[in-house]
Design a protein around this nucleic acid. Structure first.
Lengths: 140, 140
DNA sequence: GTATATGCAAAAGCTTTGCGGGTTC
DNA sequence: GAACCCGCAAAGCTTTTGCATATAC
């Protein structure tokens, strides 16, 4: 049984067939698929209603089993939360790189504290370009 | 003439009546209104098509005169970019607080550099709750 | 056996777009 | 006067929802 399926059991979500398929797709994904893309992948040789996929995803997000992002466009994208991480988007290729760095978390926590807030969570989305040799020699 | 209207002129956008109204609304807004909300505010005693508001907003974003955010829900929200800042969302009230801190930018820049990237821009969205007395006495 | 999830299809946002006429420069 | 923008209305997408049936526990 998959890691995510176990989480579902623990949190009292029913392990229906469509739900298992969705979990398998997300667990196997190395990208950040949209609901429709998840539906496409989950219905390989099987009939699952698109509306059902949306309902499953919402349940999983509420239960804290999946995370939902919006990046900078309309449609929502999903992923299984690994360790706390954020996203770096390559401005030239659009590729999304995962970015984990606990020094960042400490910085954000201090910034929130300066305003009188206690940090609950944060989302960071970085746009950047690969460094070239020129970058190392120039003061950009 | 408003600050944003001047920017439009400089960048060759026509100052039509609907465009002026939209600019005025955004310039006066202390929140982060959606396109529909901007339309509602801009059509006080005047008829402007909703589609026109969308077209104007898109033009303004492309010209770099407004910024578009998605926060954590479907609909897009707009604001006039002041100095570089980010957003802190109060988890209890949903209130959005602006968060400007150049120490943060330095942290993010270093994190990107560690991955071999040169920072272009970043977006930070913090969820937090107001600190109470208890927070100061407890190790949360 | 019962509560809950699914499938289907319709509907509900939000956003974009084609077209003819009007406005800005 | 020419280029561009607007109003209107329709269409496109993504996401949600009502209802009868099927399924997991």
């Amino acid at each position: 049984m998959g890691r995510l399926e176990i989480l579902c059991q623990e949190r009292g979500l029913r392990l229906t067939r469509p739900c298992r398929r969705v979990l398998a797709v997300v667990e196997a994904a190395s990208d950040h698929p949209s609901a429709q893309e998840i539906h496409r992948r989950a219905t390989a040789g099987e009939r699952i209603a698109l509306g059902t996929v949306y309902r499953i995803l919402n349940r999983l997000v509420i239960a804290g089993i999946l995370e939902r992002h919006t990046f900078n466009g309309g449609t929502m994208r999903y992923e299984a939360p690994q360790e706390r991480h954020h996203h770096l988007i390559d401005a030239r290729t659009g590729q999304i790189v995962e970015l984990a760095d606990r020094r960042l978390a400490a910085s954000v926590e201090r910034a929130a504290a300066r305003l009188g807030y206690r940090l609950v969570d944060f989302k960071l989305e970085v746009t950047a370009v690969r460094k070239t040799l020129a970058d190392r020699e120039t003061k950009a």
